[in-house]
């Protein structure tokens, strides 16, 4: 290989850019965690002293605690329902050919091209018309729509990687189709299913762009509560709540990474 000035310039600038990129990507989360341990009254940098008092305040704050509960509850439900719907649809798309298959596939990924604001107000209008804004359904269904593409992608990838031979062997041994799915297919793609469910959980748990519209008079999720709070005030309480969210998200990503590896995470 030939080395010259341009090569070196490119290597150096590339290294600088990468350094900058990783710093920028990690900095907000790191600073949120650092600031949450302040013992001061206000958000200053560097934080004054060290204490866990803001975490205690979160624990005592009904608004944030009930929002955390709502978020968790909705996210778990979304994960479960998305998993069932996602598996059924992905299985059908992967294993069978039927009229309208391309349409189904396109439909599954269509939520990705609709801007969140548009989906949010569309759903708000629909559910307001149905008189359902005080129930949990708008949030649940809105998050499901958002989660479907990610769930489908993960399960479709798992199904595509799986060896059909084992299923065929089971069928040769006179296993019924249901037995094959339950004893062969599901256990084989279990890591994919789990990570799909976790993807759905994070999508729902962290969403604010659609949720912001779907809490009208009803329940509020944690990110929306944070949004409303930050819109008017700015104190370490939010830093503590946000750190909790970071912790949840981080542990979830690490779990997926364990299940399917960093390679397929992307």
């Amino acid at each position: 290989m030939r080395s010259d000035l341009i090569d070196n310039a490119m290597a150096v600038s590339g290294a600088c850019i990468r350094c900058l990129v990783y710093t920028i990507l990690a900095l907000p989360a790191v600073l949120v965690i650092v600031s949450s341990f302040t013992s001061g009254e206000t958000m200053n940098f560097p934080p004054a002293g060290f204490s866990l008092r803001w975490y205690q305040k979160v624990w005592e704050n009904d608004l944030f605690m009930s929002a955390l509960w709502t978020s968790t509850y909705v996210a778990v439900l979304v994960a479960l329902v998305a998993l069932v719907i996602g598996f059924a649809s992905a299985f059908a798309i992967n294993r069978f050919s039927f009229p309208g298959k391309a349409f189904l596939q396109g439909l599954a990924f269509s939520p990705l091209i609709v801007p969140a604001v548009v989906l949010g107000i569309g759903l708000l209008q629909l559910f307001a018309g149905l008189g359902l804004t005080r129930t949990i359904y708008p949030l649940l269904l809105g998050h499901l729509v958002l989660a479907i593409p990610y769930v489908m992608r993960t399960i479709l990838a798992s199904l595509a990687l799986q060896q059909r031979v084992l299923e065929e062997a089971a069928m040769n041994l006179r296993a019924t189709p249901l037995q094959v799915i339950r004893r062969i297919t599901l256990p084989l793609i279990l890591p994919g299913l789990l990570s799909a469910a976790i993807f759905a959980f994070v999508t729902s748990f962290g969403n604010v762009t659609v949720s912001a519209f779907l809490t009208y008079g009803g329940k509020v999720t944690l990110p929306v509560q944070i949004f409303a709070y930050v819109d008017t005030s700015y104190d370490p309480l939010v830093a503590a709540v946000s750190s909790i969210m970071i912790l949840v998200t981080l542990s979830v990503i690490l779990t997926i990474e364990r299940l399917i590896g960093a390679e397929r995470l992307a």
Partner: peptide, 17 residues
């Protein structure tokens, strides 16, 4: 992991950061 983190983390938390 650093690249994925902002994607999965809630937008408000990132903005607050």
């Amino acid at each position: 992991l650093i690249v994925i983190m902002p994607l999965t983390l809630s937008l408000v938390v990132v903005v607050f950061g």
